[in-house]
């Protein structure tokens, strides 16, 4: 069963086509990775699937519900850790979690229990009554991850969740998330720029460039097909060596297009 299914999903920002007629199927229970250079369109894809952005054209079903016409049903089934900060800095860590639990209609007893469990997981239990504005960058990130996991969604979107975290914390969190994936059958769609992380975690990976899929397979097959040692080699091979500027000017994007044509 496909828990995420998109048909010609497209998002335009003015002249820029951030996501270009994307067809994608993610199976229930999968850990699915979206990889791609800066500005490839990963966050835009996740934003459309999570109803934050309305698609310009095309359609997408998440957990059987249409992201355009059944937004509220989609929202009930998903959880998300955003790439950019999204905490209320005036509130404490606990209050941020509590707000989230209440919005998702969690009963008091279960809410308190889960909040404590997750704050312990991300090692913030001692800081739970401190306003978030006094947290370090890594602490804020950990709180956002804990919050995204709070209500046990069917589909969990993780947009560069471990950015800026130390290796110990990253390992630890991924173990918990993998466990959630196995035990509670949570489907996970994640983006990351840590290639080893993606290699180790993902059942399948889509490599995205200029809003289109350039490759889609298991990490093992991707490496085999491209005769590469590591996923990083595959990534560089498929997306080129040039540095991506977000909002690249038209000349630059022409150069990039020319490059991708040459690669054929």
């Amino acid at each position: 069963m496909n828990i995420i299914e998109t048909k010609a999903l497209t998002k335009r920002f003015g002249d820029l086509i951030a996501v270009n007629a994307l067809d994608l199927k993610v199976k229930k229970g999968e850990v699915f990775g979206l990889l791609g250079p800066n500005g490839a369109g990963k966050t835009t894809i996740i934003s459309m699937l999570s109803t934050i952005l309305t698609p310009s054209s095309g359609s997408a079903l998440v957990s059987g519900k249409d992201v355009k016409n059944e937004r509220n049903s989609v929202r009930k089934n998903i959880g998300i850790v955003f790439q950019d900060p999204s905490l209320d800095e005036e509130l404490t860590g606990y209050e941020n979690m509590d707000f989230h639990g209440r919005l998702y209609g969690m009963e008091k007893e279960q809410r308190v229990e889960r909040i404590i469990e997750l704050l312990e997981l991300v090692d913030l239990i001692d800081k739970k009554d401190v306003p978030v504005k006094n947290y370090s960058g890594g602490m804020k990130r950990r709180l956002e991850i804990a919050r995204g996991l709070l209500h046990k969604p069917k589909v969990l979107f993780l947009d560069e969740p471990t950015l800026g975290l130390d290796p110990q914390t990253r390992r630890y969190l991924w173990e918990y998330i993998q466990n959630m994936n196995k035990k509670d059958d949570v489907t996970i769609m994640l983006t990351t720029h840590y290639m080893e992380e993606a290699d180790e975690l993902c059942d399948r990976i889509a490599i995205i460039d200029h809003g289109k899929i350039v490759a889609l397979d298991s990490p093992k097959n991707l490496k085999k097909k491209n005769k590469a040692e590591t996923l990083e080699d595959v990534f560089i091979e498929l997306t080129g060596r040039g540095i991506r500027e977000e909002n690249a000017d038209s000349k630059e994007s022409w150069k990039q297009k020319a490059r991708s044509w040459r690669r054929g």
Partner: peptide
């Protein structure tokens, strides 16, 4: 200010009308 701090996304993605 909620939009600027990104907190609005947390509210908008929640299953509330």
């Amino acid at each position: 200010i909620d939009k600027q701090f990104g907190f609005m996304k947390e509210i908008l993605v929640a299953p509330v009308s």
